[in-house]
Design a protein around this nucleic acid. Structure first.
Lengths: 231, 231
DNA sequence: CCATCGTTGTGAGCACTGCTCTTGACAGAG
DNA sequence: CTCTGTCAAGAGCAGTGCTCACAACGATGG
């Protein structure tokens, strides 16, 4: 995909300008939100004419797609780095690391979070290229759950109705058959708790209700970890 | 607020046209999303000139605010009606009624859901008038939790750290002091599970992962009810 | 009943948007 | 040196939210 080392001067100029466009667009995104991201304003900031942008990105949606992939990767990087710094056998620590990394990243980049997990921009269909980076956090969480099974810990093995078990088949195949259905359900619920909490917090749904959101989030994530059987 | 019976013919025409504008705008909203809601398009559909709309709504944001309040009330109505049809002592039934009512409404009106629970429209600050209707579902859920205490059921009474207990003081005052902190935390987590699940489902985050979302949602909501001590 | 006054619809216009197309200039390859 | 492909520029199209002066109309006081 990304050509490693651009040979000619023109190619290097192109690569650099492409990066500048994306960076400027991201700055505008963080300042004003996705819907008011204006190609013309980005071009103005770069001292070029608006139509020149189209030499680098065929449309505004295409530029947005780049920003979405960047956002997914930024979040994925943050989560993976923080999770990797925790001892492998410390399941609770790894879960909390991912959770806090996601929330910290979301609070630092609210507009980028809204871009990927908020309501989809109308008329915008997520292209194939986004689904890979979009699953990095979930994959990290699934790895923790798999390690938990290796350690013999996990959520209570409540029975899962047959219809539900049948309905989560794609997830089971993705996770590998070693993960029991009840664990998968508990894992999805944990992820929903994590992503849902962050989304509601960014939307201000806890305003006038909870003062100390830092402490509350940590406590909620520990309670969630308990449902997964983590110490 | 709402003048009961408009006397003059002009006042009646005004009320009717106001309703027509809102209805047309909602139709456009459902069809194309909030960001591409165009005052001019609404005016065209109504056979009037765009500037005439401004006799009824001072700005596009103001029209959006009306749609937001309508959406909150539509969701609140749906949830309250379904919940009211369940026997008071059937806590699980009441919880499931609210949960399924919310999801059904969200699936039927995805753009309106995104309008109120999705990423806020940039440059739009939710006015005071929206906070009342915005809490109806949460208030219904809180009533169920309060009734649960009356029945002597509730979540496991795990200790709540002092800092968390201090941070949820506004919520505790809103709920009344009869609800222990651990119950409040469990209730907020249940609401996060409900709203988070619906949001992630509408965003397509369960695509390629879970086939039977109806069955999965029901199971997840039953598991969530179990954390609240509901049979 | 009529004249006045306030409310409403009209259309032009401003500044902005995404996007297209033609034009002219330049860099790199043969 | 020529030729070809890439690039920025600028004009232009269709659309947006919003403002304003003006005209038409209904409600109301004399």
């Amino acid at each position: 995909m990304t050509d490693a080392a651009p040979r000619t001067a023109r190619a290097r100029a192109r690569a650099e300008l492409t990066r500048e466009i994306v960076d400027t667009a991201r700055a505008h995104l963080e300042a004003a939100g996705a819907a008011s991201l204006s190609l013309r304003a980005v071009a103005r900031d770069l001292g070029m004419v608006s139509s020149a942008i189209y030499r680098y990105f065929p449309s505004r949606d295409d530029l947005l797609t780049h920003l979405i992939i960047d956002a997914y990767n930024g979040l994925g990087d943050a989560a993976e780095v923080r999770e990797a710094a925790v001892a492998r056998e410390d399941l609770l620590g790894r879960w909390l690391a991912v959770a806090h990394a996601c929330r910290d990243w979301a609070l630092a980049h609210p507009q980028e979070w809204a871009l990927v997990y908020g309501s989809p921009v109308p008329g915008y269909a997520a292209p194939e290229a986004t689904i890979g980076p979009g699953t990095r956090v979930s994959a990290t969480l699934l790895a923790i759950l798999a390690d938990a099974i290796g350690q013999g810990v996990g959520p209570d093995a409540v029975p899962v109705p047959r219809r539900v078990a049948r309905g989560i088949r794609p997830l089971r195949e993705f996770a590998g058959s070693a993960v029991p259905d009840a664990y998968l359900v508990a894992g999805v619920m944990a992820r929903t708790q994590l992503f849902g909490h962050i989304g509601l917090e960014l939307d201000g749904q806890f305003a006038n209700t909870i003062d100390d959101l830092d402490a509350f989030f940590d406590h909620v994530m520990r309670r969630t970890a308990a449902t997964l059987g983590f110490a």
